[in-house]
């Protein structure tokens, strides 16, 4: 997802192994109460949340780049305006999430530096390029579609500020997915070249979208503690299955073919059987070897470094004004 393979700090303890505070904390979570910033929380809970919310925030920010890639080339004024509005929303999501993370005692600047030093990650999906206009449709349809699956579930997460950020974000996400699907509908019903772009976008982005949910549950080492703390509320495989079940009929409606020969309806489980993505590729991308990792990070670092004078200038001005006010009093 936007937060994949978040390492969770702390091993899962039995009730007997917990001390009194930990037990009371777990009871609150089990009762569905929200944990607020001023409440006591285990250090592992705090650290895991910082990693997860930070990774989610970074994903919103880096996610501006593949879509921003087509703003200047959007084919109509209407599409351009819609894409601008969407990318602006994503930056806004980043802001809500950084604010949520800051309530846990870590600053936005610290998290940004960790991202730039490679110590924090963002979703693997944004290391894939947007090569044609249809990719903008496919990103909205598949990537925002996958993000919604996760974010809707996370509205029930145990940490109050994170949960509330998710509620705000989910309101905007369905518009993102709809605009993407609307591009896909137009492309799939368009000229032969447009149809080719649409199919090609689906071919390239299908498996990377499945990877967004993270590794299979059997290989997902950090899930148990995060689930117990309700930092995670659904497993990777549950969400992936839901996503496939939702998306296959949408692809059929478009007249596009999902690039999976094993895709088949399974009556018994009431869902589709489908091929797993190439997990080696997933690990390569996370390790920095995706098609765009280097470009994405260099774009973000450059923006940050080139902007240093701007940020310093504003701070210096604020200090001067404060000094003037002091002198006047």
């Amino acid at each position: 997802m936007y937060a994949q393979m978040v390492k969770s700090t702390g091993t899962l303890k039995t009730r007997e192994e917990m001390d009194e505070r930990e037990r009371a904390f777990q009871d609150r979570i089990d009762a569905g109460e929200k944990i607020e910033p001023q409440d006591w929380m285990p250090e592992g809970y705090r650290k895991t949340l910082i990693r997860q919310i930070g990774q989610h925030a970074h994903s919103e920010i880096v996610g501006q780049l593949p879509e921003g890639n087509w703003i200047t080339r959007a084919p109509t004024l209407e599409r351009k305006a819609i894409l601008l509005a969407k990318v602006q929303d994503e930056a806004g999501h980043g802001l809500y999430l950084y604010c949520a993370a800051e309530t846990l005692g870590v600053s936005r600047d610290e998290m940004t530096e960790k991202l730039h030093d490679g110590k924090m990650k963002y979703s693997s999906i944004f290391n894939y390029p947007t090569l044609t206009w249809a990719d903008i449709g496919a990103v909205g349809w598949l990537v925002d579609g996958a993000a919604i699956m996760n974010q809707v579930a996370l509205q029930r997460t145990s940490y109050g500020p994170y949960s509330r950020a998710m509620v705000r974000i989910c309101k905007e996400e369905s518009f993102h997915q709809r605009q993407g699907y609307s591009i896909m509908m137009t492309m799939a019903a368009g000229t032969p070249e447009q149809k080719r772009m649409a199919q090609d976008a689906l071919d390239r982005l299908w498996y990377p979208s499945l990877m967004m949910f993270g590794p299979s549950d059997k290989d997902s080492v950090h899930s148990a503690q995060s689930m117990a703390w309700k930092i995670k509320v659904s497993t990777n495989d549950e969400l992936r299955q839901k996503f496939v079940d939702q998306t296959v009929p949408q692809a059929e409606y478009l007249g596009l073919t999902i690039p999976d020969e094993k895709l088949d309806w399974n009556e018994a489980k009431g869902g589709y059987d489908f091929s797993e993505p190439d997990w080696q590729e997933f690990h390569d991308v996370l390790a920095g070897n995706g098609p765009c990792n280097a470009d994405r990070m260099s774009a973000r670092r450059t923006a940050w470094e080139d902007g240093a004078w701007y940020r310093d200038g504003l701070v210096a001005h604020a200090n001067k004004r404060a000094a003037q006010r002091m002198a006047a009093e």
């Binding site: 501006q64 509005a85 990318v87 930056a91 802001l95 774009a299 701007y310």
Partner: peptide, 16 residues
């Protein structure tokens, strides 16, 4: 053209 490249996040939002 600035989208995603602004000096701070607030500017990304404002420029968009």
């Amino acid at each position: 053209e600035w989208c995603g490249h602004a000096p701070v996040l607030e500017e990304d939002i404002a420029l968009a």
